[in-house]
């Protein structure tokens, strides 16, 4: 068994266990972390296929951005795990059957002589210093220059539209300008008023009235 095959089987084993734990883990944070592991192992598989750009993209986009966001949401929301897991074992036979059918289908296709797997040989060997990223970049900035620029403009439209639709200046909003807040001095807020001490003459008068009555 070649070194690559060993790596492949080890990674696959980790991937399958991780994927299984994603659905069986009791704690949603653990499930999310197992999903991170699954993504990471899958990117290892991409590397084995010499698709280093896809591997890096998977780690950066899914592990780096999507899953972190997901973890934040899971941690911030108070999710009732017991309720979510209700009926898990009840639905398990059905889910297991679906999974088994899918595995059987894949096996049938892979083993069928009609599929002609031997016809799909590995591509020509590439030089050790060949770079996927460079090739993709070259394609994007030459052949696909126009659609690439158009995609950039589409993103710009999305930004303009999102701001245009959601930004509103409310007349009754009571926001505070921190700069003004810091600059404030005692004299702006506090006014010292000298109040002369006065005898409460009226009160005594009413008191005497009451006494007379």
């Amino acid at each position: 068994m070649s070194f690559q095959a060993v790596v492949f089987y080890v990674l696959s084993l980790i991937l399958i266990v991780a994927a299984f734990r994603v659905v069986t883990a009791k704690n949603p944070v653990h499930a999310a972390l197992y999903l991170v592991l699954a993504f990471f192992t899958a990117s290892g598989h991409w590397l084995l296929l010499q698709a280093e750009f896809l591997a890096i993209a998977l780690v950066l986009v899914y592990v780096g951005a999507v899953m972190v966001l997901f973890l934040f949401v899971v941690m911030m929301l108070d999710i009732n795990i017991e309720k979510l897991r209700e009926g898990f074992w009840q639905n398990f036979p059905l889910a297991g059957t679906v999974a088994l059918v899918m595995v059987a289908e894949m096996l049938l296709i892979l083993s069928s002589p009609e599929a002609n797997l031997a016809g799909f040989q590995a591509g020509p060997a590439v030089a050790a210093d060949a770079s996927n990223v460079r090739e993709l970049g070259r394609q994007l900035y030459t052949v696909y220059l126009l659609p690439f620029e158009a995609a950039a403009v589409v993103l710009l439209v999305a930004m303009v539209a999102a701001i245009g639709i959601t930004m509103r200046k409310r007349a009754d909003s009571k926001y505070i300008n921190p700069a003004e807040q810091v600059r404030v001095r005692r004299n702006d807020r506090v006014r010292v008023v000298q109040v002369q001490a006065v005898k409460p003459e009226v009160d005594t008068a009413s008191d005497t009235n009451e006494q007379q009555a």
Partner: peptide, 25 residues
């Protein structure tokens, strides 16, 4: 003159139109 650029143009137009309508929020 290519399906990719045709599609990009279409999406650029459509996204702008959707948001123009939604501007009247």
């Amino acid at each position: 003159s290519n399906f990719v650029s045709l599609y990009m143009g279409l999406e650029l137009l459509s996204l702008s139109l959707y948001s123009l309508i939604a501007l009247q929020r």
